[in-house]
Computed example of a mutant assay.
Amino acid sequence: MGRWTARLAELGIELPEVAAPAGAYAPAVRSGAHVYTAGQVPFVGGELELTGKVGAEVDPEDAKRCARTCALNALAAVHGLIGLDSVVRVVKVVGFVASAEGFTGQPGVLNGASELLGEVFGDAGVHARSAVGVAELPMGVPVEVELIVEVG
């Protein structure tokens, strides 16, 4: 067991199965020293965790939990492609939040993903990030997250 998979076990976190693509794309692609994941939504056991807009049907704390789930799904995509223990560092997180009119707490929602990456990778999990509010996301989900990681 490598460094990151051991850390997941220590935290009691199991990576989910890689979600099957909902279109003509790959869950993750390697280019040089980086892996880029497709946008991951909050699937748990093949079912959507929540749907709706944050600030209306979805509470920001519930959306934060969904962002964590999205990040786990993104890590699963990385693991499925190259093995999680090949990760050198998390470079960038991009998150989209389906936002009700007037909702401006997108960064707090995306902290669910960022905090998970910090728990797992420590200093190597500190990353650049964009937290973007959008009108709609696929399947009505409240959050979508993608990662860029450097690999060795």
Rank of each mutant, 00 (worst) to 15 (best):
5 T>W: 10
103 F>V: 01
83 G>N: 08
5 T>G: 12
9 A>H: 09
123 D>S: 15
147 L>E: 10
114 S>Y: 00
130 S>D: 11
122 G>R: 06
10 E>L: 09
149 V>K: 05
129 R>E: 14
29 V>K: 01
39 G>R: 07
41 V>C: 10
112 G>K: 07
50 L>I: 00
57 E>M: 11
40 Q>F: 01
31 S>H: 04
135 A>G: 10
12 G>E: 02
107 P>L: 09
52 G>R: 11
62 D>S: 15
34 H>F: 09
107 P>N: 06
50 L>H: 08
39 G>Y: 14
26 A>N: 04
11 L>N: 13
82 I>L: 09
48 L>R: 05
24 A>L: 12
31 S>V: 12
32 G>W: 01
57 E>R: 14
93 V>E: 06
59 D>N: 13
114 S>D: 02
52 G>T: 09
129 R>L: 06
105 G>H: 07
132 V>R: 03
46 G>M: 04
60 P>T: 12
152 G>L: 14
129 R>Q: 14
9 A>C: 10
41 V>S: 13
8 L>F: 14
127 H>M: 06
83 G>P: 03
10 E>G: 03
82 I>S: 10
14 E>K: 05
100 A>K: 05
3 R>D: 08
51 T>H: 00
125 G>W: 09
109 V>Q: 05
137 L>I: 01
14 E>L: 10
142 P>Y: 02
128 A>C: 00
150 E>Y: 12
6 A>M: 08
83 G>I: 08
60 P>F: 14
7 R>K: 15
56 A>N: 11
71 A>E: 06
41 V>W: 07
148 I>H: 03
41 V>E: 15
132 V>Q: 10
75 L>S: 02
143 V>G: 04
2 G>V: 03
123 D>M: 03
25 Y>T: 04
72 L>E: 08
11 L>K: 11
134 V>H: 06
142 P>K: 13
9 A>P: 04
82 I>G: 00
25 Y>H: 10
98 A>S: 13
53 K>G: 05
82 I>N: 02
113 A>G: 03
16 P>Y: 08
58 V>S: 12
111 N>L: 12
13 I>L: 10
4 W>T: 08
130 S>V: 09
21 P>W: 11
31 S>A: 13
57 E>K: 12
112 G>A: 06
140 G>E: 13
